[in-house]
Amino acid sequence: MDLIAQQLVNGLSAGVAYALVALGLTLIFGVLHVINFAHGELYMLGGLVTVIACNLLGVPYLVTLVLAPVIMLVVGVGLDKLAIGPLLDRRDGLSDVVLSTFAVSLLLLDLVLAVVGPAPERVEGLSGVLILGPVIISHQRLFVIVLGFILIAGLDAMLRYSRFGIEMRAAAQDRFAAEAVGIDVNAIGTRTIMLGAAIAGIAGALLVPVTQFTPLMGQNVVIKAFVVVVIGGMGSVPGAVLCGVGLGLIEALVNIRFSEGMTTAIIYSLLLVGLLMRPQGLFGRAAR
């Protein structure tokens, strides 16, 4: 029982990371109908910014939580202007973007591997632990869970109540109508990619003290984020959050009895069952 409680806490922090990465993916898909294969590398770059800022430049860890998303906003603009925006107007634009973002993913991964090397890097986050009976929670893990949910709630409020959120949802629901009422859908697309990149960046910065930095950390997370987005429903924000957190919890619980390989097999089995039984995802709309 104690082990289950401990694993639930661990799974919750991993689930928040999956949810944040999946949120960016699903927002970009919802507005642009584009699958961003470079999204894992945006998460990894958030972690890399934290490593460089904390370990090389001596910047306090909490400051990097602002620095990483700000830098990733700029990376998001670059990604849009170089690998997404110019290709979308082509006849086979959507499939071209799959290839271009995949190319960006490999480029960034190999570049970071070449410069930093494959060895894991530690980053000191918040120190100390909280002991709740049999459950031990590091302050950093608690911080990931609390800040992660605050970010998710803030994002939800932004989507519901801000002008940008309303225009973004309008562009996602009906691009033609959004253009017809005067919404600059190209600008909304760029801002959505920037937002997705910033969320991935802050998720990377949050998780690096828990998981350590490796250039492959993005690949590991993004594959699970894809599972989350497909099961939750492509373009569905509640689907990304609930399935992301759910996947983290399921993974942690299954890990109690089974090896990591078996856990991965179970997750992909869930993906296959989901695709067969409900291809639009748990929270997605069926195609008309």
Binding site: I166, R169, A170, Q173, D174, F176, A177, A178, A180
Partner: peptide, 10 residues
Amino acid sequence: PEGRHVFPDM
């Protein structure tokens, strides 16, 4: 527009 094109989930 023709077909109304309201944003259905808003």
